[in-house]
Design a protein around this nucleic acid. Structure first.
Length: 648
RNA sequence: GCCGGUCUAGCUCAGCUGGUAGAGCGCCUGAUUUGUAAUCAGGAUGUCGGGGGUUCGAGUCCCUCGACCGGCACCA
């Protein structure tokens, strides 16, 4: 048999008989390595210790100490161990798939009865038993027919369907954990005992559609998290607890920002504190947009069905629209209208007034547009996914040739705003042509390239979201994450040649002929509601001074200071600062605690000494130490701090 | 929309197998004049998410509707 040359990470190379497995290689190196080994990295690929190597390759033996392979394998093996535990406990449960995800894994089961929290405890216990068995993992490649016959015999229809979906060219690999078998592409650990039994936890059960298709059966998905050791697991759980404290729904209540109630699901009752954030942000955005060459418009909320039919929304988006039927007193016919779910058709109406020249393009038309969408009930989420919201929307009417430059300009605009608002950690996704689409492949090629190039030109990397574009054009999504790491699309830019066509938007070109503009739908924040939710979570409620709803509380230490406190508040207000007095009959400790919990950035305490000196003692949120400043100095300082970043 | 869970005072939560609702914080009243994360004492909290049913009796059991939470699907 021919030899293969394997090159180790230290550069040494050795010849082995072809077909040697990494397990055998490890054994040849040392007994202890062979015991500790979990997998190999062969030519950069993650390789099972049992898979033969048939050609020259680089090789590294991985152990549980190697975070990348260890986390992947531990989580993957746990998915199998969990499935085995479930089938041990309930033999009738059918297994489906169980991939590794961020921090852990899930596995989807088909079972008539729901899994209860107690069941999760029982499953976890059973999993620990399986781990303690230290059952060897073995693998074989099977013929398709045999695999299908096997799963049919075992009444596992989902597995049969999975096999049917695997391309015929790919080998079918079976894995065993002890006697329990699963179809799996691997790799896996050597034996179940290599899983750290104290570093995983089953987290939750949730419904999930088979193959992600809402027309197919709903399965039960059990989520688990796993790490290399117990401390990492504990750290993760602690992180989750802390993240829960940053939840905007909790902070919204605690900081008295807004509330929602049954009578208006998915809509927000903004309280004075929350509305202050909203209006500050809106004022800031308005200034930024003006400075960046946008004109601002405002368009109707309730618009006749006639326009929605022309725009195509009536056919394609009706189920998400709030339909309003108006029975006018003297009208013979009811008029059917809809609350606008988006602003674009109305903006085209504004564009269409009067003749537009190529000299008017690009025309950047902005609106803080209030939209209502009948979102599915299960999609609602705090103030981040709602049925009534306001977009910082704009449509850029331009020519094809202007798309790339306008996109680049927009990305830079957005990046500046995100930076002002304290976001450094955001991503761009480029969503490309979906299966169901209009337009030629050439035009898709062009616009997809234009968006990608604009990202590059602006200096930002992007991920591709294959097939996620709108039916009329590709889009960029600007994604931020919430407290517990869920992704939210905030900013967006979508190329749309369709709506100008449908609503007959034209301009007179340089050649004197009518031409069709393209529209770029774009938003920076996305919606004020979602963005404020993210903003609250990312700052854990401690908003930057200019956005803080309550900026300063002036607290009296003794009631003799009350008059002075009111004087200080008046001076601060005159300087444009949101200040209030706290002259309640309470100790300063009490007031400091209460306003700190309330995330007020600055507390100014006034006692006899301050009255005497005409000073204040400043305590900033999150800082223990205090400093005494003169009244003039603190008013000047805070007035400066209160300026929005674009006014600095 | 789908699967599962939850809904008790303003907030956070307790209330066992059905016997007629409680705590802490907050709120109100009074005392206290206080120096940087909860001063003390007293007082009132409520259609137990809505509706219907079973029962002598329902916060508790059943049905139904709704909202919310976690996922999934959706996210022109």
């Amino acid at each position: 048999m021919a030899d293969v040359t394997l090159t180790f990470p230290d550069g040494n190379a050795r010849a082995y008989p072809a077909g040697i497995t990494p397990a055998e290689v490890a054994e040849g190196i040392s007994k202890s390595l062979s015991k500790k080994a979990i997998s190999a990295t062969v030519n950069g690929a993650h390789w099972d210790l049992q898979w033969p190597i048939d050609a020259d390759a680089s090789i590294a033996i991985n152990t549980l100490q190697d975070a990348g392979p260890a986390l992947e394998l531990v989580r993957h093996d746990l998915a199998h161990i969990m499935a085995r535990a479930v089938q041990d406990l309930w033999p009738n449960v059918k297994v489906t798939i169980g991939p590794v995800i961020a921090n852990g894994w899930y596995y989807d089961f088909d079972r008539a009865e729901p899994f209860t929290p107690e069941d999760l405890g029982a499953i976890e216990k059973k999993m620990k038993e399986i781990i303690n068995l230290r059952d060897p993992v073995r693998t074989e490649i099977w013929e398709r027919d045999r695999a299908i016959a096997h799963y049919e015999a075992n009444n596992e229809p989902y597995k049969v369907e999975l096999i049917a979906a695997i391309p015929g060219s790919e080998p079918l690999r079976m894995y065993w954990h002890g006697d329990w078998q699963d179809l799996c592409r691997g790799p896996h650990l050597q034996h179940t005992g290599q899983v750290p039994a104290d570093a995983f936890k089953l987290m939750s059960v949730a419904g999930a559609y088979w193959r992600g298709d809402s027309n197919r059966p709903m399965l039960q998905r059990i989520y688990g998290v796993a790490f290399q050791n117990r401390d990492q697991l504990k750290a993760h759980l602690t992180m989750l607890e802390e993240a829960a404290l940053r939840d905007h729904r909790k902070l919204g209540r605690e900081m008295d920002l807004f509330h929602m109630q049954e009578e208006a699901p998915g809509q927000i009752f903004w309280h004075p504190n929350g509305w202050t954030i909203y209006t500050e942000l809106q004022d800031y955005m308005r200034r930024k947009q003006r400075a960046d060459g946008y004109v601002e418009v405002n368009t109707p909320q309730v618009v006749s069905r006639v326009l929605w039919e022309k725009s195509g929304h009536w056919d394609n988006y009706q189920e998400h629209m709030f339909i309003v039927e108006v029975d006018e007193e003297h009208a013979r016919e009811k008029s059917v209208n809809a609350l606008k779910p988006m602003n674009c058709p109305c903006h085209v109406q504004v564009f269409n007034q009067g003749l537009k020249s190529y000299r008017d393009l690009p025309l950047r038309m902005a609106e803080f547009g209030s939209c209502n969408r009948y979102e599915p009930s299960g999609a609602l989420h705090g103030i981040m996914r709602v049925r009534g919201f306001t977009q910082d929307d704009a449509h850029i009417f331009c020519t094809d040739a202007q798309i790339e430059a306008e996109t680049k300009k927009f990305i830079e605009f957005l990046a500046g705003i995100y930076a002002d608002l304290g976001f450094t950690d955001w991503r761009i996704k480029l969503s490309t042509r979906p299966e169901k689409r209009i337009g030629t492949d050439e035009s898709w090629d062009q616009t997809e390239h234009a968006l990608g190039n604009a990202c590059k030109a602006a200096g930002y990397a992007y991920e591709i979201s294959e097939g996620e574009g709108a039916f009329y054009g590709p889009k960029l999504e600007f994604v931020l994450t919430d407290a517990i790491g869920r992704d939210w699309q905030c900013g967006t830019l979508q190329v749309d040649p369709n709506l100008p066509e449908r609503l007959d938007a034209t301009f007179i070109g340089a050649d004197g002929a009518k031409a069709r503009p393209v529209m770029l739908h774009r938003a920076v924040l996305g919606s004020f509601e979602r963005f404020i939710g993210i903003l609250i979570e990312s700052h854990a409620g401690k908003l930057p001074f200019w956005l803080a709803p309550r900026q300063v509380v002036v607290a009296a230490i003794v009631s003799d200071a009350d008059d002075y406190v009111h004087e200080v508040v008046a001076l601060l207000k005159a300087a444009g600062i949101r200040a209030e007095a706290d002259t309640r009959n309470e100790k300063i400790n009490y007031k400091v605690r209460e306003h700190s919990v309330g995330k007020v950035p600055v507390i100014l305490a006034c006692g006899g000494r301050e009255v005497e000196e005409r000073s204040v003692t400043v305590r900033r949120l999150g800082m223990k130490q205090t400093a005494t400043q003169t009244l003039e100095a603190i008013v000047a300082d805070l007035a400066k701090e209160a300026r929005a970043p674009d006014l600095l």
